[in-house]
Write a protein that binds this DNA or RNA. Structure first.
Ligand SMILES: [Mn+2]
Ligand SMILES: [Mn+2]
Ligand SMILES: [Mn+2]
Ligand SMILES: [Mn+2]
Lengths: 218, 218
DNA sequence: ACCTATTTTTAGACTTATCTAAATTTATTT
DNA sequence: AAATAAATTTAGATAAGTCTAAAAATAGGT
């Protein structure tokens, strides 16, 4: 089994690989992990020793098959627990992340399997992110950022890019939640803000907002 | 907040204080923690620094009020999670301990509170041990070991002293579970074994068994 | 009261994960 | 192609938690 720290690094590398297919740089990882580059180098060496990552000095890292499998298991647990907290324990979607950061490291295959079944094999976590199944498979929805929609286009809100409490509570306050339809009424070229229609209400939102909301077009 | 290791020590001291009211010795703690006496001394110093225990060199340790409160919180979480695993996730009572050892260290007051409510504020864990409430209060049942019962005496099985898988599965195999009535039919002075009546069945059990089953007399 | 056995503590070392500061390698600019 | 800047690695230190071996304190037996 792997340490909490090792698992967190694997998770971070997994997420960063989207953006850096050529290999995740030490600095990018340091920023993501909120630590120093020298610490990252040390840890990368350990992960490499354990064949969790492919690493050549100065060339960045990639996950090995084992590393990827492990990262996905941790992400699966993280998202299952988030779903559990919201659906069963009355947590708001902005309160679950920190607790899930702890729960994702609990080691028990049976626990994960049974929790999944108890929850009815959910496909998405409270933020719209896919929950990998027991085999590690998950489907990435064909979603776009709301900011990418043009005037008169519409779709369903399916996820958030930023999961910070501040952003999620802003959405709550404005009655924006996953599953609702959003239509772009106007787009302001100058500042990127837009006027949207959601549940009969008109709402003006800044580009920072539309840049962090995922939409499934239709 | 305290580390996993610190919390485990506090829990161990709490349990050992039953037996050693005068103070828990370094050796007793080392045995309970499955570690070396020198490691225990080191940790005790740290706990003492943090005012979690009262410690004078060579005199053993006692929990401070803060230490006791912390220990009880950990035990509360341990037992709530055990109850959750059995009642909601189809775990058998012999499978829950190791997972609960991990889950008991999750830090979130809201999680503990909501889990407690979700489970319906259970009073006893799967092994018959009391679950402290949010204020740390719990009632110790007036139970005795089955081995202390005399011939013709009877009572309800309310707990186990040994929570090992081997013992619990022995009980499963022989259909002995909490809540059932047991009557002592015969006691063998020579080896301490006894013949008991449980659900119309007669069963001969060794002293090792009767020494690990708690009974509420009536 | 003294000697011995047991218990407990101390000293020094190791591992994991982190840091700062310095050295090295790679990338960019002139 | 140098020179400079940026990224990365190395060296050396620190803290937590553990260990073995040795020293010190306590408890028991005569
Ligand atoms: Mn999260
Ligand atoms: Mn999430
Ligand atoms: Mn237990
Ligand atoms: Mn228990």
């Amino acid at each position: 089994m792997f340490s909490f720290s090792e698992e967190n690094y694997l998770k971070a590398i997994f997420h960063l690989e989207r953006k850096y297919q050529a290999g995740v740089s030490t600095n990018a990882l340091a920023e993501e992990m909120e630590t120093k580059a020298s610490s990252v180098t040390d840890m990368i060496k350990k992960l490499s020793e354990k064949d969790l990552v492919i690493y050549k000095k100065y060339q960045g890292v990639k996950l090995s098959e084992l590393g990827k499998k492990t990262a996905i298991e941790v992400i699966r647990k993280h998202r299952l627990w988030e779903y559990f907290l919201v659906e069963k324990l009355n947590f708001n979607w902005d309160e679950v992340h920190d607790v899930a950061e702890q729960l994702e490291h609990i080691k028990s295959e049976k626990l994960t399997r049974e929790l999944d079944a108890f929850l009815g094999f959910p496909k998405r976590d409270p933020h719209g992110d896919p929950i990998p199944d027991a085999e590690g498979n998950f489907s990435v929805a064909n979603k776009v950022l709301l900011s990418e929609l043009g005037k008169e286009e519409k779709g369903i809100c399916v996820g958030v890019r930023d999961s910070s409490s501040d952003f999620l509570r802003f959405l709550d306050k404005n009655n924006i939640s996953l599953g609702k339809e959003i239509k772009v009424l106007e787009k302001e070229a100058f500042d990127g803000s837009m006027l949207i229609l959601i549940e009969e209400r008109q709402l003006r939102i800044s580009q920072l907002i539309s840049n962090n909301l995922y939409i499934k077009k239709h």
